Structures are given as C-alpha cells and as structure tokens.
Simulated assay, not measured.
Amino acid sequence: MSADAEQRSIRCLVAKVGLDGHDRGAHVIARAFRDAGFEVIYSGLHRAPAEIVQAAVQEDVDVLGISILSGAHNTLVPKIVDGLKEYDAFDDTLIIVGGIIPDGDREKLYELGVAEIFGPGTPMEETVSFIRENAPERR
C-alpha cells in the first residue's frame, strides 16, 4: 500500500465536548486533517461525552481529537476515556486534545491516556505529523 493510501485510511473524529461554543479551531483542524488526506468526522457543538464515545465507536475512528476551551477538560475528558474503555475502543484510539489546557492539568490528562495536547498556535504540520506517526494500524 502506498504512503498516500495509508494516510487516507486514517479516520479522525474532531469532537466538541460540553458547553464550549467556540468551534473555529475545530473547523481549522478538521480542514487541515482533510487536506492531509485523513477521513474526518466533525461532531458538531455541545456534545456530551457519551455522544462522542458513541460516534467514535460507531465510526470506527483511529483518532479522537477533542477540542476544548471551556476549562472543563478535567471532568469531560475522563468521561470520554472511561466510555471508550467500556466499549473496548480505548486501546485502538489515539486520543489528542486541542485547546487551552493549563500546564498544571496536562500530566493528569496524559496519565488518563491522552497521547498529546496541542495548544493554540500549534502548527498544523506538527499535529498532522504526530497523527501519522502515532495513529494505530487499521483493524
């Protein structure tokens, strides 16, 4: 399989969780992922953790990108991780978080299983490269 075909096979869910209504960054990253050849599903705004888990499982995604700016990451991300574990989808899903995450909260998210956290201003190429290097093989 060519490198281009492998890149196109990476399925990503870009998810907006909770009451966070700022989705500009999520749209920008979804476009960058599409331009990189990834299959992209966008959750829409104001999704509950259970809705995001359901979408990730139903769409059989390789990557779950959680966009959060509301400050509720310590409450919402663990619920998503727990939900993925309930469906045995955690080990097969690369979880990344984008948004404003204080330095003091990052270690807890990494301990939960978040692979990487990307803050505002992160170059798109950096995020795309991270996914290409770390996305699980298709099942």
Rank of each mutant, 00 (worst) to 15 (best):
Asp88Leu: 02
Val28Asp: 02
Ala89Val: 02
Leu84Tyr: 08
Leu76His: 13
Asp103Asn: 13
Ala48Val: 01
Ile131Val: 15
Val40Leu: 10
Gly44Val: 10
Leu64Asp: 09
Val61Asn: 07
Gln54Ser: 14
Ala89Pro: 02
Val77Trp: 01
Ala55Trp: 00
Lys85Tyr: 04
Gly121His: 11
Val57Asn: 09
His27Met: 13
Gly37Pro: 06
Gly18Ala: 02
Gly98Leu: 06
Val61Cys: 10
Asp20Ala: 03
Ile101Leu: 08
Ala55Ile: 12
Ala15Gly: 02
Gln7Tyr: 07
Ser2Ile: 02
Ile68Arg: 00
Ile131His: 05
Glu107Ala: 15
Tyr87Asp: 10
Ala15Gln: 01
Glu111Pro: 00
Ala30Trp: 04
Ile52Gly: 03
Arg24Ala: 11
Leu19Phe: 13
Arg31Glu: 14
Asp105Ala: 13
Glu107Lys: 15
Arg31Lys: 15
Gly25Tyr: 04
Glu126Trp: 00
Pro78Val: 06
Asp92Ala: 12
Asp92Gly: 07
Val40His: 06
Pro102Lys: 02
Ile41Ala: 13
Arg138Tyr: 06
Arg24His: 11
Gly37Leu: 04
His73Gly: 02
Gly99Tyr: 08
Arg139Lys: 10
Leu45Asn: 06
Leu69Arg: 02
Ala30Lys: 03
Val53Ile: 06
Ile52Ala: 08
Val61His: 06
Ile80Leu: 08
Cys12Arg: 01
Glu125Asp: 14
Gly44Thr: 10
Met1Asn: 12
Ala15Cys: 04
Ile80Arg: 04
Gly121Pro: 06
Pro123Tyr: 07
Gly119Asp: 15
Ala36Pro: 03
Val128Arg: 04
Ala135Trp: 05
Ala15His: 01
Gly99His: 09
Cys12Tyr: 01
His73Asn: 03
Asp62Trp: 00
Ala56Arg: 01
Glu39Gly: 11
Pro49Gln: 04
Val114Ile: 14
Gly104Lys: 13
Glu137Met: 07
Ile66Ala: 08
Gln7Pro: 00
Gln54Leu: 07
Ala5Asn: 12
Gly121Leu: 11
Tyr42Leu: 13
Phe38Val: 11
Asp91Gln: 14
Tyr42Cys: 11
Pro136Val: 02
Ala55Leu: 15
Thr75Gln: 11
Val57Ala: 13
Arg31Gly: 10
Asp88Lys: 13
Gly71Asn: 03
Gly25His: 05
Phe118Met: 12
Asp4Phe: 04
Leu76Gly: 04
Ser43Gly: 11
Phe38Pro: 11
Glu137Phe: 03
Pro120Gly: 15
Asp88Asn: 15
Ala36Glu: 09
His22Ala: 05
Asp23Val: 02
Ala30Leu: 09
Ile66Glu: 04
His22Lys: 08
Arg31Ile: 07
Asn74Gln: 14
Val77Gly: 04
Met1Cys: 11
Glu51Met: 07
Gly18Cys: 03
Ala36Val: 10
Arg24Glu: 01
Ala72Leu: 07
Gly99Met: 10
Glu125Ala: 15
Asp62Ala: 14
Leu84Gln: 08
